[in-house]
Simulated scan of single mutants.
Amino acid sequence: MARQRPKAVTLTEAAATRVKKLMADRDLGYLRVGVKNGGCAGMEYVMDYVAEPDPLDERVEDQGVEIVVDAKSLLFLLGAQIDYEVTPLHAKFVFRNPNETDACGCGESVTLVPAQVAD
């Protein structure tokens, strides 16, 4: 019997609640997460709405929410947890990523290494 594959990313209860609200307010399909080159540390997290996932995107269901992970970003996001934080100064999604090795001082970009996949 094959072992169950772990989820590529997970969501906290706060993140799932926020995604549910965003998706209920808009009829946009899916929330897609990924990374792109940019910023002083090398990479930035990105989130966008898509009507349909790309065929190679990873679908993730967690906390009653389905999101998609960009296929090109998958190795950089494996094991990450997405949270939603509200403080007096901001309300935003936050990535807690074990593949993150550094971040810039302003917190807008990060240095990421691909996850090491065990056999």
Rank of each mutant, 00 (worst) to 15 (best):
A71D: 05
E44C: 12
L78F: 10
D119Q: 13
G105K: 09
V117P: 08
A15Q: 09
E13Y: 06
L22D: 09
K92M: 14
E66I: 15
L31H: 04
V60T: 04
L22Y: 07
R59A: 14
K20R: 12
K92E: 15
P53N: 13
G34V: 07
L22W: 02
D102R: 14
V94N: 06
A71F: 10
L78M: 12
M1L: 10
V86I: 11
E58H: 01
L77R: 01
I67M: 06
T12R: 06
T12L: 06
V110I: 12
Y49N: 13
D48I: 13
Y84D: 10
L56M: 05
E13C: 00
G79A: 14
D62L: 02
L78V: 09
F95W: 15
V60H: 02
K7L: 13
D48C: 14
R3H: 13
A103R: 10
P88C: 10
Q116L: 11
F76N: 06
K36M: 10
A2R: 07
D27E: 12
G105H: 08
D48G: 15
L89M: 14
E58D: 02
R96T: 15
T17Q: 13
P6I: 07
A80C: 12
V50A: 14
A115W: 04
M23Q: 13
N97H: 09
D25R: 01
H90S: 15
A14N: 13
P88D: 15
Y45W: 08
T10E: 10
D119S: 15
G39Q: 05
V94T: 11
A24R: 01
Q63N: 00
A103D: 00
T101E: 06
M47L: 09
A51S: 11
M47Y: 07
R5M: 05
F93N: 11
P98D: 15
D62E: 02
D70C: 15
R26K: 09
A41R: 03
V19G: 04
A2C: 00
A15Y: 08
G39V: 06
Y30W: 11
A80R: 04
L56P: 00
S109A: 01
L28W: 05
A80H: 05
K36W: 08
L77W: 01
V68C: 14
R5V: 06
E100W: 01
M23R: 09
L77Y: 03
F93C: 11
E52K: 15
A16V: 01
C106V: 03
T87M: 07
V65W: 05
D102N: 14
E52G: 05
G29A: 06
P6K: 04
S73G: 07
P53Q: 12
G29I: 01
K20I: 09
V69F: 02
V94F: 07
T87C: 09
L31E: 07
F93I: 11
M1S: 13
V50C: 13
